[in-house]
Simulated scan of single mutants.
Amino acid sequence: MEPGSMENLSILYQSRDFLVVNKHWDVRIDSKTWRETLTLQKQLRHHFPELADPDTYYGFRFCHQLDFSTSGALCVALNKAAAGSAYKCFKERRVTKAYLALVRGHIQESRMTISYAIGRNNTEGRAHTMCIEGTQGCENPKPSLTELVVLEHGLYAGDPVSKVLLQPLTGRTHQLRVHCSALNHPIVGDLTYGQASGREEQPFRMMLHAFYLRIPTQTECVEARTPDPFVPTLDACWSPHTLVQPLDQLVQVLQAAHDPKPTEGDTGPCSPSSCLPGPGRPPPHPATPPETEAQRASCLQWLSEWTLEPDN
Rank of each mutant, 00 (worst) to 15 (best):
H47M: 03
E50L: 10
L51E: 03
A52E: 15
D53M: 05
P54M: 12
T56C: 07
F60E: 10
F60V: 09
F62P: 10
C63T: 15
H64R: 12
D67P: 11
T70A: 09
T70H: 14
S71W: 02
L74H: 05
A77M: 14
K80Q: 15
A82H: 01
A83D: 14
K88F: 01
C89Q: 08
C89R: 00
F90G: 10
R93E: 03
R93Q: 14
R94W: 01
V95K: 01
L100N: 07
V103G: 01
G105N: 08
I107W: 02
S110D: 14
R111T: 14
M112Q: 15
M112S: 12
I114V: 14
I114D: 02
S115V: 05
Y116M: 08
G119Q: 03
R120H: 11
R120Q: 14
G125T: 03
A127W: 12
M130A: 12
C131H: 04
C131W: 09
C131S: 14
Q136D: 05
Q136T: 11
N140D: 15
K142T: 12
V149W: 11
V149R: 10
V150E: 06
L151C: 02
Y156T: 11
Y156P: 00
Y156L: 08
G158H: 07
P160C: 01
K163E: 02
K163C: 08
Q167I: 04
R172W: 09
H174I: 00
Q175V: 04
L176T: 05
